[in-house]
Structure formats: C-alpha cells, structure tokens
Design a protein around this nucleic acid. Structure first.
Length: 497
RNA sequence: GCCAAGGUGGCAGAGUCCGGCCGAACGCAGCGGCCUGCAGAGCCGCCCACCGCCGGUUCAAAUCCGGCCCUUGGCUCCA
C-alpha cells in the first residue's frame, strides 16, 4: 500500500500525491511565543516530525516550514516578566522553544519564519486583497469580507449564517459582517486587551503596551492580524499551493478557515492540498492547554522521563485521535520503551559475544523481523499510524528475546540478530527513537562506580550473605540503578539510559 | 443551538475507509509454569471483550444503512 492521509478538507482518506515528489511542501502552524511550550505542543511537533521522517524514508524530498508568531497581545502581556519589550519577550521564548525542540530530537525545519520579519509581505498581501475587493479598510484597520468569498466555511463545514461573531466587541462596529476578520489592526495594543493574560509580576499593562511593535502601512500605523501571517509566510517560503498543511485540531476554525479564504482569494489557487490536523490531549475531563493552565512543560517532561520515553508516549496514539494524558499512560510508554531498549541491548551484547556465529540460522527470528518490518511500513503508510508502528517494533523485541532465550546453551544467529538490531534502529529512527544511549563522561564514571559496588555485592553473595547483598541492590535501585542477576553475573542499567 | 471526531477487555489502544483471515493486535495490570538464593528481566501458557443501545441489509457486520443515548473538541486566545 502506498501512503494515504486523512484530509480534513474532504473528510476522506486519500492517496498522497504531492505536486512534485522531490519537494513535498510542508507547512506547520507554529506557536505564539508567549508561554513555555507544553506536552500538547510537543505532541504535534513530534507527529509532524514523524511525518517528515516517514516522507523522507519513502524517498520524498521535504521542504518543511514552521512559523513563530512573535507579534501578539499575549506576548505584550509578558513584558516586564520575561523580557524588556515585546520583541525581547518573543526572542526569549523562541530560544527556549528551539531548545525544547532540540531536546525532543526533532528534525530541523528549513525555515522558522517570524511575523515581525514578514510585515512587508503581509502588507502586500492585504493590498492585493483590497484591490481584488475581498477586503475593506475601516478606521485604519482592514477586514476580510467573508461574504465575498463563496467557499468560506468549506474546511470547517459551516454555513456563514451559523458562524458567530469573532474578535473583540469593539471591532464589531467597524465590520460589515460579524464574521469578517482583521487583516490589519490600527494602532498599537490596548491595555484592556492584555489584562486577562497578565501575570502578577509583569509590568503594568499600560507600560507594557508602550513596548508593543507597530509598523507603517498604507492605512496608517498598526499591527498585522493573526490569520494573515500564515498566508504571507507560507506563500513567501513555499509558494501559492502547499502540499501539506498541518496544525492542531483547535485551529481548524477560525484560523485555518481564514487562511484558506485569504490565500485563495488573493492567488486564485488552491492553498493547500492536504490538511492534516493533530488531535489534542485529554486530561481526565478536559483538554490540555495554555489557557487552562493544566499542562506539563516540555522541559519538565524531557528532564523527568528522557527523550525516548516522551516520544514513545507522544506517538502512542494516532496523530488524529485524542490521547489521554495520565501518570498511567506515561508509565506504560516507559515500559514499552524499556522493553525495546532491553531487547536492543541484549541483541547487541549477543552479537558481540563469542556465542554469535554466522553459521547459525534461526528462520523464525528472521521471518518475525521481516514480518514486523512489513507491518511497520503498512502502519505508517496508513495515515501515519504510529501506534501500530510501535506494535511492530515491539514484535522485533519479542523475536529477539525469544531467539536469545532459545539459544542460551546453543549459538546465536549472528546475521539474524544484526538484521533485528538494524531494523530496530532504522524503524525506531522513523519515530525519532535513539538507542545510542548516554555517552558523556559522567555516565561512564557512574557506571564504573556501580560496577565497583556490584563487585562487593558479588563477594557477599558468594559468601551467602544474601541479606547484605539485597541491601546493596535496594540501595542502588533507590538511586535509579536497575540491577539484574544473570547467568553471566550481574548486569545493570543507569537511570535515563 | 450549529459543525466535527469518538464510544472496543481491569487500563490504555489498534482494527471500522476496502464486511468473512477479528473466536478482536501490541503493551500494561492479573494468574499459572520455566529460570532464579530471592527479586527483576526474559520465555511459555492463561484470564478479561455478547466491539454504546435499538432496528435493518447480508450466506456473513466491531466493520455497511437508519434511529437513539453518551463523551470530547470547535463556534473566544489555544498545538
């Protein structure tokens, strides 16, 4: 089966056919940089990353663009708390966000465009829309006229009559239709607009608003509207028609609907061929979100569980189905990752041991690995079914364990195991999982110390002092060191490995 | 109210587009056995699902059609 994706625009699962297989144009609606990224953001990033990796695995070239919204009232609300002015706050959060992305082992996008650097393109786009009569100026602001775009509502399947008025009430008098939305907003930021987003230790609202950025335009001084930025930036970097536009489910309306209206009105071309939407986390009864404050930051999660566990967790469901966030579901992801890693370690150790022989052949091992590989490919081609893909990886682990169990007294299938390890590394790599382990000096020293303690413990065991031996093991485990007694003597794993 | 996505074992979560291989995957939890000084890891086996409810189509339905109930998301900033 070839790659199929579920397109929000049509509601169907369709064969994936980019305009040019050498350059799949992928745009992801990035963050407004006004808060630390949380696991919900990470979930979308990781799924986009897996899509990127899988497309490359299939032989496509991928041009991946991901924006930062660095002009926004919520950013202004953080002035005095996270930076000296709007631009400074944004810069701080962008740096933090990029660091979080690296910690998640995400492939880099080709460009991370920022709103503040694309104001001329935004102004030009707004001018085009006015010329084509899709937009109108009102008191120095410019609004998109939704009644002029016949297909308005096609992404979210809504009729214009059903759509309630958006935006703040003050704007409504300036609009012709309640669903018209701002392309350009006159003047700076009003203190009232940021009040609800302010934390206690931020600068006073009026003072913070002084630092808000504004730009000159044909309609006077002002700031770009929220939706127009993505249209301007995606067109600038990827052209009029994207192959894939990805974003969170919560952005379908109004943001993505408005992007389509602006872009298609301006260019007369289809804006994006495939619209993919990442579903949200569910925390018991409600979604995880910045505005609800019920989130775990990316930095906390990576620090606590490590990149591999976090990625295993985030890909434990399909990108387009809701996922439950709880201590239990994370613990399960940890178990799955541990199982993969242990099998990988065991296989690697067996390959390096004198027991491994190129003359041994275990057909069952080889067949199971080949089957798992096939299942993985099928799963990923079926709308990036990462959960099924994980299952396939776990089948490889089981095949390795079974072979090793059966070959304890006999010899190990060197080439079969090599193939299994390569499969784990290659396919695990598609999910962004890394079996490389810790390599910095502190881990080595810790390992040496643990070996020293285990040596002492072995002598206690030989002497029959099991009580003392168990104490030592318990103490090591309290430090997070996992100890295992095997036929070949004790083995251990350091925390976070 | 309108739009969208869902309701599958103790938990989590595939399968539903293309009806039969689903007497329902993978993992976790639980129970036996092997291994072990013990534990863990691992292996083998088992337990737990009338697939939200009602009706229909069909030789055959978790999968298709109709109705109903419930949940989540969007309609306000939000991945």
């Amino acid at each position: 089966m070839t790659l199929h994706v579920t397109n929000t625009l049509t509601g169907d699962t369709e064969p994936f056919e980019p305009q040019d297989p050498d350059d799949v144009l992928l745009y992801y609606c990035g963050l407004t940089v006004s808060d630390p990224p949380h696991l919900g953001h990470a979930r979308s990033w990781v799924h986009v990353d897996v899509m990127h990796r899988w497309l490359e695995h299939l032989g496509y070239g991928v041009r991946h663009v991901e924006n930062f919204t660095d002009v926004n009232e919520k950013i202004v609300a953080r002035v005095g708390e996270d930076g000296a002015d709007e631009a400074d706050v944004a810069e701080n959060y962008i740096e933090r966000t990029l660091a979080d992305m690296r910690s998640l082992n995400l492939l880099r996008a080709e460009v991370y465009p920022r709103v503040s650097e694309h104001v001329p393109e935004i102004v030009a786009l707004v001018e085009t829309l006015i010329e084509k009569d899709y937009a109108y100026e009102s008191n120095g602001s410019v609004y998109f006229d939704v009644t002029g775009f016949e297909e308005y509502g096609k992404l979210s399947n809504q009729a214009l009559e059903e759509i309630e008025s958006q935006g703040d009430p003050d704007e409504r008098s300036e609009k012709r239709h309640p669903a018209d939305f701002a392309l350009w907003k006159a003047d700076g930021v009003d203190a009232n607009a940021i009040e609800e987003h302010r934390h206690e230790d931020a600068a006073p609202a009026a003072e913070a608003c002084e630092t808000a950025q504004t730009w000159e335009s044909p309609w006077g001084e002002g700031r770009p509207g929220w939706h127009i930025e993505c249209s301007a930036m995606s067109t600038t970097h990827l052209g009029d028609t994207l192959d894939v536009h990805v974003g969170g489910r919560d952005l379908v309306f109004p943001h993505h609907e408005n992007e389509i209206a602006q872009s298609e009105a301006a260019t007369g071309q289809q804006f994006a061929k495939y619209w993919l939407h990442c579903e949200l986390f569910q925390m018991d009864e409600e979604k995880m979100s910045s505005s609800l404050g019920n989130f775990v930051t990316v930095a906390e999660a990576v620090d606590r569980w490590g990149t591999n566990v976090v990625r295993t967790f985030l890909t434990a469901g399909s990108y387009n189905s809701q996922q439950l966030y709880s201590d239990e579901t994370i613990a399960e992801a940890e178990e799955r990752w541990d199982r993969l890693e242990r099998a990988h370690e065991a296989a690697t150790a067996a390959i390096d041991s004198p027991n491994a022989s190129a003359k041994v052949t275990d057909d069952e091992l080889r067949e199971d690995v080949a089957d798992a590989r096939e299942a993985f490919v099928e799963a990923m081609n079926d709308d990036f079914n990462t959960r099924e893909a994980q299952s396939a990886l776990l089948e490889v682990a089981t095949a390795i364990n079974r072979h090793l169990e059966g070959s304890e007294d006999e010899r190990a299938d060197y080439r079969g195991l090599r193939r299994a390890v390569e499969t784990l590394e290659e396919l695990g790599g598609v999910l962004g999982l890394s079996f490389a382990g810790e390599t910095d000096g502190s881990a080595e020293l810790a390992g040496d110390v643990v070996e020293l303690v285990l040596g002492v413990r072995e002598r206690e065991r030989e002497a029959g002092n099991y009580e003392r031996a168990d104490e030592l093991r318990d103490e090591l485990e309290a430090l997070g060191v996992e100890v295992q007694d095997t036929d070949e003597g004790p083995s251990f794993r350091l925390p976070g490995e």
